[in-house]
């Protein structure tokens, strides 16, 4: 199967090279025709158009190869680790689902893909990659800033609770309060846990203090610290609507593969590690989760 995929990759690479070469040759001919007229501006415009066209072609071919890789290799890896597997590599959580979670602030652009729904030790979970971008316009320039890129996981909890609890890894110049001026979240109070090490790393906000201490048992605090230690990105945990939401801003798409990368042992191992990370989080919160 990997061999089949490698053949597909080579074919797609050839296709990309040919299309790119075609674009460049056409541009070169156009340039030769108009070079004696001294249209430097048109020349620059043409170069930019070439770059855009080649990038678009690359994205489309890369997407095809990426999907083929996920359908052939990743799906098999996932089915070995999880039960009742359901995947949709082209789509993920909807913008509304993420907004409801109140963990990740949404800006101008939202993308989500690699949706996985499965069970581990009877515990159902859903996860997907999400990417949030902010388009900042200042005068003549427009900059696209990535505000969140990583994965989002939802697991139902055994304990029943009505309040909102958010645990956010502290960040420079961020007070950690998830409640903005126009938020529909209830009034949240900042809480201090008894674990000083935990308090240094995380801010806890809750609409009900007793509920927060009911869910965040000393054992759970240890598990949160363990999850945080496994990931390099910023970790956010939310206890909302009877579920645990985990968002990790790792600034990467977890199951992405470039057209220039082979689906070899190294790549498969890298993605195997990502699957183990998801398993790790669910294992950590296993005792608090609902078996179905």
């Amino acid at each position: 199967m990997v061999q089949q995929l490698e053949e597909k990759r080579r074919l797609e690479m050839k296709k990309f090279m040919l299309i790119s070469a075609g674009i460049l040759i056409v541009s070169f001919i156009v340039m030769l025709v108009f070079s004696n007229r001294g249209l430097f501006g048109a020349f620059l415009f043409l170069v930019m158009m070439d770059i855009v066209a080649i990038a678009l072609v690359y994205q489309s071919i890369k997407k095809k190869y990426g999907l083929a890789y996920k359908e052939i290799c990743l799906k098999e890896m996932l089915s070995k680790e999880f039960d009742d597997l359901r995947v949709d590599f082209e789509h993920g959580f909807s913008e509304d689902q993420i907004r409801e979670g109140h963990l990740v602030t949404l800006y101008d652009r939202f993308y989500s893909d690699d949706y996985i729904s499965a069970k581990l030790h009877g515990i159902p979970f859903e996860c997907s990659d999400i990417h949030v971008q902010d388009v900042v316009r200042s005068g003549k320039t427009t900059t696209v800033v990535t505000r969140f890129q990583g994965f989002y996981l939802k697991v139902p909890l055994k304990k029943t609770f009505k309040s909102w609890i958010v645990v956010r890894e502290k960040e420079f110049l961020d007070n950690g309060n998830p409640r903005g001026w126009f938020s529909d979240m209830p009034e949240l109070e900042k809480l201090k846990m008894e674990d000083e090490q935990f308090n240094q790393k995380f801010s806890v906000y809750a609409s009900d203090g007793v509920d927060a201490f009911y869910l965040l048992t000393p054992r759970f605090l240890e598990e949160i610290k363990r999850v945080e230690a496994c990931y390099e990105g910023r970790c956010l945990f939310g206890f909302l609507h009877g579920s645990l939401h985990v968002a990790v801003d790792s600034r990467e798409d977890h199951f992405d593969i470039s057209l220039f990368e082979k689906a070899d042992e190294i790549k498969l191992n890298e993605h195997h590690q990502q699957i183990q990370m998801i398993k790790g989080i669910i294992e950590c919160v296993r005792k608090e989760c609902e078996e179905a």
Binding site: K159, L191, K192, M193, E194, G209, V210, D211, A212, F213, Y214, T217
Partner: peptide, 17 residues
């Protein structure tokens, strides 16, 4: 008991502050 434990920890956290 779990609720009492939570209430106790919440109270003690506020008492400490």
């Amino acid at each position: 008991e779990e609720h009492l434990q939570a209430a106790r920890r919440f109270y003690n956290s506020n008492a400490a502050l």
